[in-house]
Design a binder for these strands. Structure first.
Lengths: 93, 93
DNA sequence: CATCGCACTTGCATTTTGCAAGTGTGGCGG
DNA sequence: CCGCCACACTTGCAAAATGCAAGTGCGATG
C-alpha cells in the first residue's frame, strides 16, 4: 500500500479533512464544528472518535459537559496537504 | 463552501486520488490501473468517467478497443497535494 | 469462424452516510 | 428541591456509495 493510501485510510473518509481544516484555526467545540460544517451529528461523532484514535486530535474537557477538540502535532502536520488541496479547489472555476 | 470542500467534491471519492497518483507517472490503460490499485472494476469505470467530466483526465484512443488515460494540466496540478498527503501518510508508523 | 484480450456493464450484497428523534448530565432560575 | 435548558452525544432507520462476481461487445488473431 502506498503512502497516499495510508494517509487516506486515516483522513480519506467524508468530512475528516474538513474537520481538521476547522481545527487548524484552533480548538473548537462539538457544536461549533457542527454549525460551521453542516455535518450530520452522528457522522461528526464518529469522525471525531476515529480521528482521536488515529492520534490526529485530542478531546480536552472544559466545563461539566463541554469539551474542546484540539489537533495534535500529527494533526497539525496535515496543514500543508490541506492548503495544497484547498488551492487546487480554489481554481475550480 | 470552502475551497477544500470544492476540491473534495471532485477528488474526495474513494480511489479518486489513488487513480490520479498512478497517472502522475504517465498515461496508463484501464487494466494497468486495475492491477496496480486493486480497485473494483465498476468503481474504476465510474471514477474515470467522473474524473474525465471534471476535466482531470482525458481518454486517448490507442488501438481498436484499447485506450489510455492521461492527466490534463488540471489533473497534474494535483501533484503538490498528493505529494503532501503522501508524505504525511509515510509518517504513519 | 471460433477464441482471446481489453474495456467495460449489470445485478445484487454490504457498508457508509444522512436524517430525525431521543438520551444523559450538570448548571441555573424560581 | 424542581423543572428547564444547553451541550454532547446515541439510536433507529432510509438512502446512497462501494464491492463482488459474472456477463457483454468488439476488433484482432490463429
Amino acid at each position: 500500500m502506498s503512502d497516499l493510501a495510508a494517509a487516506l485510510k486515516v483522513v480519506g473518509a467524508r468530512w475528516a479533512l474538513l474537520i481538521v481544516e476547522q481545527l487548524l484555526e484552533g480548538p473548537k467545540r462539538y457544536g461549533d464544528l457542527q454549525r460551521e460544517l453542516g455535518v450530520p451529528t452522528n457522522m461528526l461523532a464518529t469522525r471525531l472518535r476515529e480521528l482521536e484514535e488515529a492520534g490526529v486530535l485530542v478531546r480536552l474537557p472544559l466545563r461539566h459537559n463541554t469539551r474542546a477538540y484540539e489537533l495534535t502535532d500529527r494533526g497539525r502536520a496535515l496543514r500543508e496537504a490541506i492548503v495544497a488541496l484547498g488551492r487546487w479547489g480554489a481554481d475550480e472555476r
